[in-house]
Design a protein around this nucleic acid. Structure first.
Lengths: 361, 361
DNA sequence: CTGAAAGCGCTTACAG
DNA sequence: CTGAAAGCGCTTACAG
């Protein structure tokens, strides 16, 4: 020790290549030092009321002192739960770069963290479904439940959940054909808010850029759009309605088709803000002033909506809250505290600069 | 059986409340039916070359026939790996609703899936760090490694990884003070591309909306900005440079401050597209034409950039690729196939409508 | 109220 | 090339 070759500098110069990883402290170590059985330590960990307050305190102190962290693989292997949830996204290219899903996921993650759950990401790609991974992740004990985002009627694998054997909640859509649990924003009410507002501003010839007829909420939107126009004595013409594929590009193209077929349209209602942005882009390029010549209105109210030019009137969807609530209900389902989930969250219209009284032509 | 009360209809009408969950098939079941030991089945599963081709085939067939799926909790408990990675995000409110992180995460998830890994989401909130969860997730065997997004010099908990005991890769930033592995886009080269382009267009008085001086790549950008101006014989004035906090709102406010202090500025360079959008919004409101009166240029090249009005010139960052590469390298580090990761990815400038020759004033 | 023991479903030396 | 057995680190009846 010391002298010619001080151990400290030796450690510094020669990399400790084969340094033995110190085994992390486990349940048995704690039990031994606390002079109780492993069962007792386990019960303290799980706050089992059968343990006396005195032992509980003493063991807890030892746990803290030794910095013990239970191995959750062992915990999950022995118990019924993994305390992990999956967020399942559709197979869109670069799917996570989307503000809509981002809001939902933020809500899910925050709530999951507060309730002691971890969140895993999955994408329902063709291979994933073909390999029955949607079932395998339960059976292989990766997760206790799934939050299904962006799903639609064509996702036939969801039928595998109609036996309610594995907890799953559809988030911001509903698919009653398979009897699945859901938490959804009120798309019908949101559309009514839009239509009431536009009609009130004097608009009668209204273009509608929708998308994804395979999504139930999108169909609801279309239904209410037509219903409300008819209620106002206006028969919606087919060429007022077009598909914008939920993208900026698609929105721009749909706007073009609608306005070329029906130049007398005075307002465009888009099924999401992205398509509304695309429509705005097209109009501005063509010298059609917003809202002077045409009103444009979106759906979702993403953060961007307030910062485009002109700022975009839109229906606010409580997506963060929907994600959080779905997460909470899913955990309740996993624990058997609830057996059906069917929640509808309110929306509201945020009026900004992109809408005005119908132009007199 | 049958007769007065056919068992099938009984099953159909009375809900099978206490239907015993059929225990999923396990290794032992397969071993028994295949008439081999569990060790052999395990080795077939893990493609251990010690197993003869004949047994391998026979056992594999039984595995397929019985629909056996290994319990991965047991696998991980027995082996060294969980095959789960964490993506760690900073504690931004609604952090996932961000196109920048979304692109990185998409890259990570796609590559992880291909390599047989799952991805878990974490946010480095104050409590998370205080409870030393960033270490606990390794010790408790949730994950094998972390991909750290959006981190900066103030994230002192990253110092806990300088001993390289737990695999972690910093994505799209680098923090050399802690000797961490990283995969980063070339921010210096990207800034050079911007400056070369603007100078070439005749711009000399250039405003710079940056943010986050605690982020090394952001400082790099500032350095190159100043360097290049000086190289062109222009001394950058302090009031040309402002902080936009990486948000639309912040970008709009920074643009206002810069242009009020220096109305003769002919171009604004923003450190991300969001701030550029905010700046555009401000200018348009004030009647400053883009690019007629002022050129605006962003950084990131998010999808939006092509669809705002005018469309935004921006530096394209290969974020998807950065995420994917970081993921792959992390897995290599976990498996000890590489011991240092320091990758730099190229950027390029995408010229759109928001930039033009410097206005003559 | 607490402990000894079985069990969760795998992997991995160690024999043969 | 294959098997018997120990072990991973917990939880949970079952005794006492």
């Amino acid at each position: 020790m010391g002298g010619a070759m001080p151990s400290e500098s030796a450690v510094e110069t020669s990399p400790p290549v084969l340094k033995k990883e110190p085994r992390p402290v486990n349940l048995r170590d704690v039990a031994k030092r606390a002079k109780v059985s492993v069962a007792t330590v386990s019960m303290v960990l799980n706050e089992n009321p059968r343990i006396s307050r005195a032992t509980q305190m003493r063991v807890q102190q030892m746990i803290d002192r030794m910095g013990y962290r239970p191995n959750r693989l062992a915990q999950s292997l022995s118990s019924r739960y993994t305390r992990v949830l999956a967020v399942m996204l559709p197979a869109l290219r670069h799917g996570f770069g989307d503000a809509y899903f981002g809001e939902l996921i933020s809500g899910v993650c925050d709530r999951a963290g507060k309730l002691g759950y971890k969140v895993m990401l999955e994408q329902a790609k063709p291979d994933f479904v073909k390999n029955r991974e949607h079932i395998a992740i339960y059976e292989r004990r990766y997760i206790d439940g799934i939050l299904c985002l962006g799903c639609n009627d064509r996702h036939h694998f969801l039928a595998d959940f109609s036996d309610r054997r594995y907890p799953l909640i559809v988030v911001d859509n509903y698919l009653e054909q398979w009897g699945l649990d859901y938490v959804v924003c009120n798309y019908r009410a949101g559309t009514e808010q839009v239509m009431n507002y536009l009609l009130q501003l004097g608009h009668r010839k209204i273009g509608f850029i929708n998308a994804a007829p395979e999504v139930r909420t999108a169909r609801d939107r279309l239904e209410v759009f037509q219903q409300r126009l008819r209620l106002a004595g206006v028969e919606p013409e087919p060429q007022w309605i077009d598909d914008g594929q939920f993208t900026e590009q698609g929105g721009a193209e749909a706007a073009q088709r609608i306005l070329e077929a029906s130049p007398d349209v005075t307002a465009l209602f888009a099924g999401n803000d992205k398509m509304a942005l695309g429509a705005m882009h097209y109009c501005t390029r063509r010298g059609i002033r917003i809202p002077g010549d045409i009103s444009i209105i979106g759906f979702d109210d993403m953060q961007q909506a307030a910062f485009v030019n002109p700022s975009l009137t839109s229906v606010h969807l409580p997506l963060y809250e929907a994600g959080a609530l779905a997460c909470e209900r899913l955990i309740e389902r996993i624990r058997g505290k609830v057996d059906r989930v069917a929640e509808v969250l309110p929306t509201h219209l945020v009026v900004r600069e992109s809408t005005a009284m119908a132009a007199q032509r």
